[in-house]
Write a protein that binds this DNA or RNA. Structure first.
Lengths: 225, 225
DNA sequence: CGGAGTATTGAGTACTCTCAATGGAAGTGG
DNA sequence: CCACTTCCATTGAGAGTACTCAATACTCCG
């Protein structure tokens, strides 16, 4: 997935005020529009026209869906390097919000479609980005439908540790409510499970509750099923 | 999604013993290999190489994923007209099984990739098939993570009724265990919820338990959230 | 230091699960 | 054609996990 934008990332980021972009001989290069969002800002909301898709440069974005009564399901957290927002038809299917200061590259969908026709190989790569996102969705369905609270949290911690890859310490960019809505639990249950894990020596948590040390990765992996 | 194979379905089905396929002037047409499966047969299993993807001609296919201890999550039921098996990388991510006699058209992935390059418009359509499948996955995550048993069953019945479109009667192709593993419940809970719905006059169930009449669609839709 | 926001902990409840028994339907073989 | 078997679905009783409501603790920031 990373490779989709290999060609793009070698180019200077394009700022909103129409920069001229260097072009390869026979094809149009996609222009990544650099955009910044403050904590809490929405990148787009359910029902919006889906003109752009995004690649995260820094920060974390959550995509979620609401039920009519306010119940929320977060389907993914998108970290630096991740591509998202591609998965929708002409209208947005869910909401994307910055949960901390975020910088993204926004790509216009229409431009990209044009490009795909000029460069089929790129199309394949974009396709596999979408497929990767489907695979993650399937894993998450197993988690939501068939795992216990303990297993859910263990899976979550290991996944985040692997993606943020800072050894055995995880700097959680999101608060408990987000974790709960991602795992299909309540904040209280998430908190209780974390406390239990601390008591069992599986993890350690900093005072501010946002940094977690994986003390017994093997045990966590056993729990993650 | 249906339109992806508009060109294909006008052509005679190709049988395994290398038939010669009529060809359009400048491009290769995809060959749909007709295959039949008995109830219970696996079309493919987790870990298999993913050489083909499929379009259901008749019958129902379930795709599922297992945890190491046997817990199962069914991510979708594929009915006549549905395309599936496209969503994987080189190895199968889940298992596909026929839950009743099934006829499918199997398309070789490699051939299709070649075709995509010859016909970009087809690529777009295939892409949107994948995207549609992602949208369904997201809806299902909301169901698994945030809906009650009653809401899950109501959602399931309405969805199936809409897809099978036989008015207000639904002929369930799957047994209770499948419904349970699809909704993240146990068979007992599914059974209890259905019984409750019968008592409340929302549905009626035939003696064999496989046909369900939606007696109060409005009430069900209210429950489906 | 005080207030707002966030996280933890406690008590009690409820929804769904587990274990177990019963009821029905469909298919098999005599 | 009818007993028998098997598979599947329903129902019951009790238990347990996760939830709700509520209070307390902790951080961060002004």
């Amino acid at each position: 997935m990373q490779t989709v934008f290999a060609t793009v990332s070698r180019m200077p980021p394009v700022i909103s005020t129409a920069h001229t972009v260097p072009r390869a001989p026979r094809q149009t290069m996609p222009s990544g529009l650099r955009r910044t969002f403050a904590k809490g800002d929405a990148l787009f909301a359910e029902g919006d026209p889906s003109d752009y898709f995004y690649k995260v440069v820094s920060g974390t974005v959550r995509t979620s869906k609401l039920l009519s009564d306010g119940r929320r399901q977060i389907d993914a957290f998108h970290l630096a390097g991740d591509i998202f927002g591609l998965e929708n038809s002409k209208d947005r299917y869910f909401t994307a919000e910055a949960i901390e200061p975020v910088v993204v590259l926004a790509f216009r969908r229409t431009e990209f479609t044009t490009l795909l026709h000029a460069d089929p190989a790129l199309g394949d790569q974009l396709m596999s980005a979408t497929i990767a996102s489907l695979d993650r969705a399937h894993d998450h369905m197993v988690l939501l439908g068939r795992k216990t609270a303990l297993e859910k949290v263990a899976t979550f911690l290991l996944d985040l540790a692997n993606r943020l890859s800072r050894g055995n310490s995880v700097d959680l960019p999101m608060q408990r409510a987000d974790i709960a809505d991602y795992l299909g639990l309540t904040i209280e249950t998430v908190s209780r499970v974390l406390s239990q894990m601390v008591r069992d020596g599986l993890i350690a948590v900093t005072a501010a509750s946002r940094t977690i040390f994986l003390k017994d990765r093997a045990a966590l992996e056993l729990l993650a099923v």
